[in-house]
C-alpha cells in the first residue's frame, strides 16, 4: 500500500520534472522569489526596485486613481484611432503595391528604408504640427504603424499565385470582386501579420510619444509616478500594459488560426 503510493507520487514527480511547462513556471517563480528577497532584505533599495508583492498591491492602487484610469482610456483611444488609420492606409497602399510590380519596385524600397529608421526622430514634426495633446499621438502612432502594415500586406499580396490572377482574368472578375473574392483572401496571412505588427507598433509609438511630451495617457502617468519616486506604481503600469499586450497577442493568434483554418487543412 505504502509502497504503491510512493510509486505513484514518484511517477507524478518524474512526469512533472519532464514537463517543460513546469520548468518554465519554476523559473518564473524563482525569479520572482529572488526579486522579492533582494528587495525585502535591502540588497537593493526598495524605492528603486520594489518587490513584486508591492507591485501587485500597486496595481490595485492605480485602478483606484481616477487619473490612471483616465490615462488608460486616453491611451486606448489614441491606440485605437491610430491603428485604424494605419490599417486603412496600409491596405489602400499595400494592395496596389503588392499587385503592381512597377509600383512595388518604385515605392517599396523607400518604405522599407523608413521602416528601419528610428521613427522617434520624426516626433518633433508631429508635436509641433499637432500640439502636445492626443492628436499628435494619434498621428505619430498611425505614421509608425503604417510602414509595418504596408510591408506585410505587400508580402501577403505577393503570395497571390499567377494561376489565381489568370482565373480572375479568364472569368472576367470586376475589380471589386477580384479584390474581395481573390486577392484579399489569398493575402490574409500577410494582412494578419501586418495588423498584429501594426498594432504592437502603434502601441509602442503612442507610449513613446507620451513619454516624450504629453499631458495625459499611460506614458504621461509613468513620468508622473517616476518623478514622485513611486516606482511601484510605475512598474504596476508597465505590468498592466505588458499583460494586455500578451493577452491581445494570444487572442490575435487564435483569430488567425480560425481564419486560416482552410489553409491549415490544405497543408496537412
Amino acid at each position: 500500500m505504502h509502497g504503491g503510493a510512493t510509486a505513484v507520487t514518484a511517477g507524478w514527480l518524474v512526469a512533472a520534472w519532464n514537463s517543460a511547462a513546469v520548468h518554465r513556471t519554476t523559473i518564473l517563480l524563482c525569479t520572482l522569489a529572488l526579486w522579492e528577497a533582494i528587495s525585502r532584505l535591502g540588497v537593493v533599495d526598495p524605492i528603486f526596485l520594489p518587490p513584486p508583492s508591492t507591485i501587485v498591491l500597486a496595481v490595485t492602487e492605480i485602478f483606484d486613481d481616477p487619473r490612471a484610469v483616465a490615462a488608460f482610456r486616453v491611451t486606448g483611444l489614441e491606440l485605437g484611432l491610430s491603428f485604424v488609420i494605419a490599417a486603412v492606409l496600409g491596405l489602400a497602399i499595400g494592395i496596389p503595391l503588392g499587385l503592381n510590380r512597377f509600383l512595388r519596385d518604385a515605392f517599396l524600397p523607400p518604405i522599407l528604408f523608413l521602416l528601419s529608421t528610428p521613427k522617434a526622430i520624426f516626433l518633433p514634426i508631429f508635436l509641433i504640427l499637432f500640439g502636445i495633446g492626443v492628436d499628435s499621438k494619434i498621428a505619430y502612432g498611425a505614421f509608425s504603424a503604417f510602414f509595418y502594415i504596408v510591408d506585410n500586406v505587400v508580402g501577403g499580396v505577393g503570395l497571390l499565385e499567377a494561376k489565381r490572377r489568370r482565373l480572375a482574368r479568364a472569368f472576367g472578375a470586376p475589380l471589386r470582386h477580384y479584390l474581395v473574392d481573390i486577392v484579399i483572401p489569398s493575402a490574409l496571412p500577410g494582412i494578419f501579420a501586418g495588423m498584429w505588427h501594426g498594432l504592437r507598433q502603434a502601441l509602442a509609438a503612442v507610449l513613446v510619444a507620451e513619454l516624450f511630451a504629453s499631458d495625459s495617457g499611460v506614458g504621461y502617468m509613468v513620468r508622473i509616478y517616476t518623478n514622485q519616486f513611486r516606482t511601484d506604481k510605475t512598474l504596476a503600469l508597465v505590468a498592466v500594459v505588458s499583460l494586455l499586450v500578451i493577452v491581445a497577442g494570444s487572442l490575435f493568434n487564435r483569430l488567425e488560426v480560425r481564419m486560416n483554418r482552410w489553409r491549415a487543412v490544405a497543408h496537412t
Partner: peptide, 20 residues
C-alpha cells in the same frame, strides 16, 4: 479579350478557391 460568357476555361491546375 477574355469573355467568359463566350469562351470559358478549364485550367490544368484546378484553381478552385480554397476559402469557398
Amino acid at each position: 479579350g477574355p469573355d467568359p460568357k463566350r469562351a470559358t476555361f478549364v485550367f490544368q491546375e484546378y484553381t478552385l478557391l480554397p476559402w469557398k
